[in-house]
Design a protein around this nucleic acid. Structure first.
Lengths: 212, 212
DNA sequence: ACAAAGTTAGTGATTACTAACTAACATTGA
DNA sequence: TCAATGTTAGTTAGTAATCACTAACTTTGT
């Protein structure tokens, strides 16, 4: 299956394989759940197979390696980010409400799929694995690009300050978002990510805004 | 040695063991270097012993376990943060220059000791190890408290905005700092952390400032 | 004399992964 | 129509390699 099922996603210009069988998706989700529950070090093929209620060897009917599972997982998240951010861009015209909607989308997505949370704090588990390394960098870059587009537009239209370079504003917004996600994870998802997240992003937006 | 050398640090009110033999410090540094070079997964007792130019068993003359090495390492960094932040507080009276000096201190420290960089992005390797988990939380908390003190003072004296709660300002500043460190790490320390860091923190400070 | 700091040679446990086999289902061609 | 053939997705029973760690012994410095 692995060799015959390696078709490319037609709409994707790059070499990324976005296609995934339903069974592969199940495995990815189970893997993500194991990581967020017990940490990356506790993601072993044995435990993952147990979760899937099949043998370890069955894992290798669906993925070439453990690393491939992780890469596939990150790419799946990246695809979701792309899709959701494009949808938001279609629905919200103005920079400020669009920025809010972008983060709202992230909050509700991770609330529904906490198994992908760890991908945000990766860069630590990528270790000695160039493939997942690349996948994670790609994910960060995609998020950054979408953020940059809104911020830049907001600066042009005068709702965000021009006194600070676009990339720095993006950095500040992204850093705030990431720390928020980290604290949600550390707290064991012990607070409402959307409520707290909204007021936090409101604060950032008011800081970089010109109207105040 | 391990049992006889477990004296407490007199000036430390908590139960933290800050004392460390010179040889233990060497081991901690070597471990940190291995992690920042090749990732946490590549920190094995075998490789660490190789780096130290002695046998694996020799490691256990200095530490009770691999976990103890990590905990010791994080506690060492925490002690450094405390000491440096107190020194900065002594030297710089006003909130704004003190905030700048705090980050300058971090930048030059990590430039000189990149082996401790990974401790900032931990929370991923703490996994299934309650002791290092606690140590990392303590480190984050110490940094947060020192930041909070300056920001709060700045708000009182009117140089930082009162329109946003202290903790949110702290969050934004800390998030920006952490992302900066992460990008420095990802880039393979490929840029001047101080130069870029200063202009970044200048941007944040101008945003949360009232003078404009 | 003696403790601190090293050595060698192992331990059992766990790791990701593989070989060989099979039941169920799908496709094909006379 | 239906047997031949192939594919998919599972199984059991391993593999070599690596992991953190230990027991017993030796060297070294004061």
């Amino acid at each position: 299956m692995i060799s015959t099922d390696m078709r490319r996603n037609a709409k994707n210009h790059s070499t990324m394989k976005t296609d995934i069988t339903p069974r592969q998706l199940e495995i990815i989700e189970a893997a993500g759940r194991l990581i967020t529950e017990d940490g990356y070090a506790m993601l072993t093929t044995k435990r993952l197979a147990e979760r899937m209620q099949f043998s370890e060897a069955a894992l290798y009917r669906h993925f070439a390696s453990k690393e491939a599972i992780l890469v596939s997982m990150i790419e799946h998240l990246t695809a979701s980010v792309k899709q959701r951010m494009e949808e938001v861009a279609r629905k919200e015209e103005l920079p400020e409400p669009r920025l809010r909607a972008m983060f709202d989308s992230h909050f509700s997505y991770f609330k529904a799929h906490p198994e992908y949370l760890m991908a945000i704090f990766a860069t630590n588990f990528m270790e000695s694995s160039p493939a997942s390394d690349r996948a994670i960098k790609e994910l960060m870059e995609v998020m950054r690009q979408h953020l940059r587009a809104v911020v830049s537009e907001g600066q042009k239209s005068g709702v965000f300050t021009k006194a600070i370079p676009t990339d720095m504003l993006v950095h500040i917004v992204m850093g705030t978002f990431r720390l928020h996600m980290l604290q949600w994870r550390i707290s064991g998802r012990g607070f409402d990510i959307t409520r707290k997240g909204r007021s936090l992003m409101d604060a950032v937006i008011s800081l970089i805004g010109t109207s105040r």
